[in-house]
Design a protein around this nucleic acid. Sequence first.
DNA 1: ACAGATGGGTTCCCTTGAGGAACTAACCCT
DNA 2: AGGGTTAGTTCCTCAAGGGAACCCATCTGT
Lengths: 159, 159
Amino acid sequence: MQRTQFGDRACSIARTLDLIGEPWSPLILRDVMVGIRRFDQIQAELGISRKVLTERLKWLVERGVLARSEYSTRPRRYEYVLTDEGVDLCDVLIAMARFGDRWLAGPAGPPVLYRHRPCGHVAPASPRCEHCDQPIRADTIDVLPGPGANPNTEANQPA
Amino acid sequence: MQRTQFGDRACSIARTLDLIGEPWSPLILRDVMVGIRRFDQIQAELGISRKVLTERLKWLVERGVLARSEYSTRPRRYEYVLTDEGVDLCDVLIAMARFGDRWLAGPAGPPVLYRHRPCGHVAPASPRCEHCDQPIRADTIDVLPGPGANPNTEANQPA
DNA sequence: ACAGATGGGTTCCCTTGAGGAACTAACCCT
DNA sequence: AGGGTTAGTTCCTCAAGGGAACCCATCTGT
């Protein structure tokens, strides 16, 4: 399907999309996040084709989001676990889950609940400003060029 | 490319992906978020084909993420603005931007800075538990079936 | 009144990646 | 030896993404 690559843009959103922008990657990550870590388990749960799953796992391991962890030596078997980077990437999934819960869940309510282990409560996660602790929303943000902004581009090279 | 639809899964992440899972949608939303709102502006900034941009905008308007706002009556011209749902959806973009800034930015630093208007500070947004205000990370979450969980599915139907 | 510009799409064709099913490989158990 | 489990690989098809060219209504300058 001749996909445009986003990774070379001066935009952190585009770069993140380059990493997990194609279909399946976020769902694979979610499976790993909730404890579904082995090839066949992921394949069965998602209904993804084995070919595509192989490709995605390899890509995610190469990019350092997942790591292969040997869980059996003699028949050499690996399961996939989140790296530190992968755990951070899950913040994006958590944001997606919250949005889906709020806007796409229908009358039955959210299909899955997330319990915050330290406090024991089921509560949504919302983005807060790390400086003032207040909620951050798209309409309370101003966008400024950062140090990594590409100087030789035509004015608008956002986010 | 014969893409699997995710919208009917009992999973808020899959449903959100159904909405903005294909390439470009998140970048289109980002453009709108930062003030690039007209067809030609978006097309030029992203380098997206006009065909795909037309399709995406129509889809996002149909799904209630964007709305068309008339900015000129005589030559009837519209620009695209975020709905309330769209503003909420931008939380996902903000999470992506934060991740990209941390892990994909390179030595030059983040290409774009986000200033929280109410407090005036440039600070990252991090997900916090709405109950205890502490940071939420993938490894501090337990997953439970929610009210909208599909009862007739095989045990694992996560997130 | 006409030429050219502008904004916002639409049409056509090509390529490429997703999907699916079948096959392979390495090892285990009995 | 035969069957089972796990983790891939190969091959083919088909439709979605990409690009470029085209279209149409309206404005602006002269």
